[in-house]
Amino acid sequence: MKERQDDNPATPEEVTDRVWELADKIDICMLTTWNGEQQRSRPMSARPKRAENAFYFLTDVSGDKNAELEKFPTVSLAWADKGSYRFAVVSGQGTISNDRAKIAELWSDMDKVWWEDKDDPSIRLLTVTPERGEIWDTPGALVSGAKMLMAAVTGGAPELGDNAAVKM
C-alpha cells in the first residue's frame, strides 16, 4: 500500500478522526509491549475515550504486561477490520493503576468472562495515552483483489488505498 501523496492529503484532523473511529468500531486490538529483549502482543478489548484522549483496558493484577509497562511504558495498539480492509495503529504511553471509579465506569457484562464483578480486587486499569496514530484505508477486498490482479498482469504496482500518520 503506498502512502497518500496526492494534492489533497488527509488532514491531521481527518486521520485522527479515522483512528478513533476505527478503534471504537473494531473493539479488540493487539496490545504490544516490550520486555527489554522482545516484543509481546496480546488481544485486548479497548475502551477508546476520545474526549479523555485515552484508550482504556481492564486487565488483571497478575501478568507480564504490568511489569513490562512499569519498566518500558511505550506500547503499540493495532486494530484490523479485515472485512473492509481498514487498519489503525496507535503508539503511546501505558500505565497501570487501581482506579476503582474508572474500572466501575468501564465495566460491562462481557467482563464477567474474566472477573465475577467490577469490585474484584484483582482488576486493574491499563491506560494508554496516544502519541502517534496511523491508518490504512483500502477500497475493500473485491476492489483490492482486482487491482492486485491487474498489477500482476501489467507488471505495475497496485494502488490499494491510503496510508496516513498523525501525531496525536
Rank of each mutant, 00 (worst) to 15 (best):
D6G: 13
D7T: 11
N8M: 08
N8V: 04
T11A: 08
P12K: 08
P12T: 09
E13G: 07
E14C: 01
V15F: 00
T16G: 00
T16Y: 00
T16P: 01
D17I: 01
R18L: 12
R18Y: 03
V19S: 06
W20N: 09
W20E: 04
W20A: 11
E21P: 00
L22K: 07
L22E: 03
A23S: 09
K25N: 06
I26C: 11
D27E: 15
D27T: 15
I28Y: 14
M30P: 00
M30T: 07
L31R: 13
L31G: 03
T32K: 02
T32H: 03
T33W: 01
T33H: 04
T33R: 02
W34M: 02
W34A: 12
E37F: 11
E37H: 07
Q39P: 01
S41I: 03
S41E: 01
R42V: 05
P43C: 13
P43K: 11
S45K: 09
S45E: 13
R47T: 08
K49L: 10
R50T: 07
R50Q: 13
A51G: 13
E52P: 00
E52F: 05
N53Y: 06
A54N: 09
A54S: 14
Y56V: 04
Y56D: 01
F57R: 02
L58H: 05
L58A: 09
L58I: 08
T59V: 14
V61P: 00
G63S: 12
G63Y: 03
D64I: 09
A67Y: 05
E68Y: 01
E68F: 04
E68M: 03
L69A: 06
E70A: 14
K71A: 10
K71S: 11
K71W: 03
V75P: 00
V75I: 13
S76K: 02
L77S: 05
A78V: 03
A78Q: 07
W79G: 02
W79N: 13
D81G: 08
D81S: 06
K82S: 10
S84Y: 06
S84C: 09
Y85T: 13
R86T: 14
R86E: 14
F87R: 02
A88E: 09
G92H: 00
Q93C: 12
G94T: 06
T95W: 08
I96Q: 07
S97K: 06
D99M: 09
D99N: 15
R100M: 15
R100I: 04
A101K: 15
A101Y: 05
A101D: 13
K102S: 10
A104R: 07
E105F: 03
E105Q: 11
W107T: 07
D109I: 14
D109H: 12
D111P: 01
K112T: 13
V113H: 15
V113T: 10
W114A: 14
W115I: 04
E116L: 07
D117F: 03
D117V: 08
D119N: 14
